[in-house]
């Protein structure tokens, strides 16, 4: 019925230069803008601009710092005013602020990926960078570095304040290993937890849904364990308590909610494994699904 017409450019007034251009088998316009072979560095620069140019980043990180520092200082004053630590490390007091503050990191992680689906920005992103794996990698790296650095600085500040504040209050002098765990260790854990949230956000593609799932994952094991009173379920209850995220965070301060379970640096390896699995899942889904 209809036949395709060969290209019949309507010649503009001046002879178009593109016709003479050596464009191989595909003639067309040749831009004066230099052609760049894009790589991960470009994607990283782009993601950095994205994350620093939305207010939710400032909000979540601002609230995180406020919570960790505020609750940390309150706990410090409370202990130095009334009681004494009876030989405990002063670093343990940093735990409480982080317990609540991590919600901010989870939120920021989820928003980094899921908000692009909510706004449709993901289509623009994937058009600008068709390598989906590269987009996910760039987002993960930029977010992880920001989350780790912010957490490390905040947590270290609070830890130093606690150490100097509580010197005369029966606190032990923390060893180098304890310092390392309570600063670098917990910061890596929190940043990985945030990265896990970012990956869940990429899988769920819905901000509120992904945040709910992550908060559920943090709280559910503790809540479920509370209701497991039957003696037959005792083992399950114990495992839920010991491997819940708050308990695992406690391991970095050595004040676990129970005596057995993960110790030392175990929680870091556990979350690393879970995050790696989530990364593989998010990557596979990103490749196979439509944007």
């Amino acid at each position: 019925m209809s036949t395709h017409q060969p290209p019949m450019p309507q010649a503009p007034a001046a002879a178009p230069e593109w016709q003479a251009a050596p464009g191989g088998p595909y003639p067309g316009y040749n831009s004066p803008i230099p052609v760049v072979r894009t790589h991960l560095g470009h994607a990283l620069a782009s993601e950095w601009t994205k994350i620093r140019s939305v207010r939710s980043t400032m909000w979540t990180l601002g609230v995180f710092i406020l919570l960790v520092v505020g609750i940390g200082l309150l706990a410090g004053f409370a202990v130095s005013g009334s009681g004494d630590l009876s030989g405990q490390s002063p670093l343990t007091l940093g735990f409480f602020g982080l317990l609540i503050g991590m919600m901010c990191i989870i939120t920021l992680g989820v928003l980094t990926t899921a908000s692009e689906y909510g706004t449709g920005m993901i289509r623009t992103t994937m058009t600008a960078c068709p390598s989906r794996g590269r987009v996910l990698a760039a987002k993960s790296i930029v977010f992880f570095v920001i989350a780790f650095v912010v957490t490390l600085v905040t947590v270290s500040f609070v830890a130093m304040v606690h150490a100097s504040m509580l010197k005369g209050h029966g606190a032990s002098t923390p060893s180098g290993g304890e310092w390392l765990k309570a600063t670098v260790g917990i910061s890596l854990y929190i940043a990985l937890l945030g990265l896990l949230s970012l990956l869940v956000g990429s899988i769920i593609r819905h901000s509120a849904g992904a945040i709910t799932i992550m908060i559920g994952a943090v709280l559910a094991p503790l809540v479920i364990a509370l209701f497991m009173n039957a003696s037959s379920l005792e083992k399950v209850q114990k495992a839920l308590l010991e491997y819940s995220i708050p308990s695992q965070m406690g391991v970095f301060y050595d004040n676990t909610l129970s005596s057995s379970g993960p110790t030392g640096w175990d929680p870091l390896w556990i979350i690393l494994g879970v995050t790696a699995a989530a990364y593989a899942g998010a990557y596979a889904l990103l490749q196979s699904r439509d944007v």
Partner: peptide
């Protein structure tokens, strides 16, 4: 910033 992040992603 919207256009900037797009430009950066392609080295424009």
């Amino acid at each position: 910033n919207h256009l900037l992040c797009l430009a950066q992603s392609n080295g424009i």
